[in-house]
């Protein structure tokens, strides 16, 4: 069964919504883990875009690129959690407002 193709704008709207949620999370949330999750959301919104355009243009490159992005996101998450683990051992909390020592 071939489903009728969902038009491109829907994908883009979904991607924008996901990206905005991620952005809002980055700007407002204090918890480090939530922050990383929001970063993942933003990355994945970009992935949606890439895949959508890839299918729309019949070009495989976009999907290959997504694989790279996923690998990158995994690496980034690993480093991010590593940092937060180190921070937690130091201060027993990962509220971002407490880590403002690099300032005036």
């Amino acid at each position: 069964m071939i489903l009728p193709a969902i038009p491109l704008p829907f994908y883009l709207i979904l991607s924008t919504v996901v990206f905005s949620i991620g952005l809002l999370g980055i700007m407002t949330k204090q918890n480090g883990v939530r922050l990383l999750m929001c970063v993942e959301l933003m990355l994945n919104s970009a992935n949606i875009n890439l895949v959508a355009f890839s299918s729309y243009n019949n070009d495989i490159t976009g999907q290959v690129f997504v694989l790279f992005t996923i690998a990158l996101a995994a690496a980034e998450a690993a480093i991010g959690f590593g940092i937060f683990m180190a921070v937690y051992r130091m201060k027993y909390r990962i509220e971002l407002n407490d880590f403002n020592i690099l300032r005036w």
């Binding site: 952005l23 700007m27 971002l96 407002n97 880590f99 020592i101 690099l102 300032r103 005036w104």
Partner: peptide, 17 residues
Amino acid sequence: FRHVQTGVVQNYATAII
């Protein structure tokens, strides 16, 4: 101007956005 440098990453991100 130095008060702009809050040290909070999120503020910088906001400024960038």
